[in-house]
Amino acid sequence: MTAVLEIEHLTKEFQRGDVATVALRDFSLTIEQGTFVTVLGRSGCGKSTMLNLLSGLSKPTNGRVLHRGSPHTGPTPGIGYLTQSDTLMPWRTVQRNVEMPMEIAGRPKPERQAAAAELIATVGLADFADSYPRELSGGMRRRASLARMLANGAETILMDEPFGALDAQLRSELQRELLRLWTATGHTIVFVTHDVEEALLLGDRVVVLGPLGAILLDQEIDLPRPRDPDETKIHPRFVELHATLVRALKEGARR
């Protein structure tokens, strides 16, 4: 297996006046090609900071990120990033939003229109292709964002608590859909969540983060695939792993 992302001794500080807020300190992690890695941690443990650095949106104070062997300097279309907040362009319809990454990549109009329509159907928004983001519910906007990110054609995907604000049914539907997409495409996915069950259901590997991005536990998840969200939750191994992860999180809080 080859490493897609290598994170080496990453530190990120935010300077304000004479005080620096340290969000991440000496963080190292390697993500293998084609794996689904979930990063589990409580709010404020530097998960989002880490993803911002991985995506290239922000620059580390110290350390570096290697993307396919070369240090990476800024955002690239090779890495897709589904941020926590919605960043659909409010003046574009869903259709035109999903077309946008392909527009920037310079793909011809008929081709990107067809591709976007298909992606929109995949996330179940076919009837709302002509709606503007403000006319959609939060969950629908999330699905539109997902479609837009997939339109990027990136093979490495970063997701920051993408399903956090959705209702339980929709969340498990989208989880199932995400797993299906991942199995079909062999993408590499780094999925950040604060939900222990979600981390277990999705990941090949769960990395539990403590304060300042300290790695508390790096656990292989040997649950059989394909994993059905409803059945996997009652698997004895799932229950066992669940307890391990929760213990690790609690220990992190005590430190």
Binding site: E118, T122, V123, G124, L125, D127, G139, E177, A184, G186
Partner: peptide, 22 residues
């Protein structure tokens, strides 16, 4: 871009919940 083609190979519909247009 090859991943893109595969992505579109097997579209499964997520059931649309939320408002409908009539």
């Amino acid at each position: 871009m090859s991943g893109q083609a595969e992505t579109r190979a097997a579209p499964v519909q997520v059931s649309a919940s939320g408002p409908v247009k009539e």
